[in-house]
Nucleic acid binder design. Sequence first.
DNA 1: GGACTAGGCTGACCCGGGTCAAGGTCTGAT
DNA 2: ATCAGACCTTGACCCGGGTCAGCCTAGTCC
Lengths: 244, 244
Amino acid sequence: MTATEQDPGTRLPGAHCDACSLHGVCLTQNLSEDTLEGLDALLDQPSPLKRGESLITQGNAFTSLYLVRSGSLKQVVRPLGQELEHVVGFYLPGETVGLEGIGESRCPASVVAMETTFVCALPYARLRELYYNNPSLSESLLHRMSRELRGEKRQLCLLSGRTAEQRLAGFLLGLSERFQQRGCSRYQFRLAMSRGDIGSHLGLALETVSRVLGRFQRQGLIQLATREMTILSLEGLQAIVEES
Amino acid sequence: MTATEQDPGTRLPGAHCDACSLHGVCLTQNLSEDTLEGLDALLDQPSPLKRGESLITQGNAFTSLYLVRSGSLKQVVRPLGQELEHVVGFYLPGETVGLEGIGESRCPASVVAMETTFVCALPYARLRELYYNNPSLSESLLHRMSRELRGEKRQLCLLSGRTAEQRLAGFLLGLSERFQQRGCSRYQFRLAMSRGDIGSHLGLALETVSRVLGRFQRQGLIQLATREMTILSLEGLQAIVEES
DNA sequence: GGACTAGGCTGACCCGGGTCAAGGTCTGAT
DNA sequence: ATCAGACCTTGACCCGGGTCAGCCTAGTCC
């Protein structure tokens, strides 16, 4: 199964999280039976987002966390007093959106769909009630958050003093790993984000992204038709990341 | 009170968190009376770290969280397969160290004292028992972590496509704000980190850090004697950050 | 107090990647 | 099928900041 073929989850109204095809990678894994039932009860499935629609708008009230069921999103920050926007992250199916708003009244970043995207919504007030009585749920949240923190530190290393080639190689390897964790091919996937989004995320101009991807292709490391990515040499990309 | 004058906390063996001078900015704020007592019981105060000593070593078993009582530390990551180290964060008094290890068996980063530093240690296994029965504690952890996540996103924006001057101005403003939150002067503080540490954190060569700080000084934005920093114009620094 | 060392400053050089510009391609709507 | 607009590619130019080298300063240990 490639990323593009993934269907919008298997959960229907009235169905249960543990029947969802993403259960194994989602926030809901490793929860006790009754905690899962509690989650099922508060969980909402809003209508799908179309490409470009916002799931979360920076500055709006923080109300909910979201679980990606299918599709993908980008997180965008517009630092106060600046008009330039930065893409600070991407979300794939099974990932938890909105964690950085916990404990705040306003959302510190926007989250925008990059393609048709289905999510589950968890109203935070009710989620909070639930985890007050189900410590396994708060532990799951802590683990998710800790993982996201590790991802950010990794991203900081990728941005700090690395060449354009190293950033892009690292980015592709990271994506590849995340697709694999979701049961998709590690070698073939569709880039839902534009060159501009990738550049903003990696601190590069979109022209540089385009040029470097072209170079990778000429070197036989990848095969890229617009947004259809095939990785031909994980080792080659890894070698680029590792060169000091 | 300036950062350098800060004494090593007021908590003595047998004393209580709520008597600590940092209680207002620490993980322990907003906890119920009995949760605090539980924390007091499991909390250990190891002997102080000297400059250069490691509190946490990357790859070692994850066992504890730490609360900074006085002094400061840097978090350092050596990505696997690379010999270069990246400074991914700094910790000031009241901050919580080790959150990115939660849910992992090994510590994903090292944490090293930049000066003589006192910490409180929270063995995670016992902390976990405690928060299983005290949801206000898990909520405090969630809030800390969410805050750290917001800090990392902010850092990503600072690194992504910004000039050396913007990065340094943003860095100084961030430090200034953190000192102020700790009851220290917003305008005067001691940089515990070297130019090299700052450079690594901001993705700049240490020579560039030195040059830009010199330029800021000549422009009358700051006054800097080696590591004694005085900010003369917060507005001026802010203007630099905001210019597109 | 003197010497050793880590850390900091400054200048010269140069290259990676930003910017601007022009043309090509893909996709969805009519 | 056609068209418009968003997205992508490629080339030319140039500057910010990395690198290398040399010197200076401050803190530390005898």
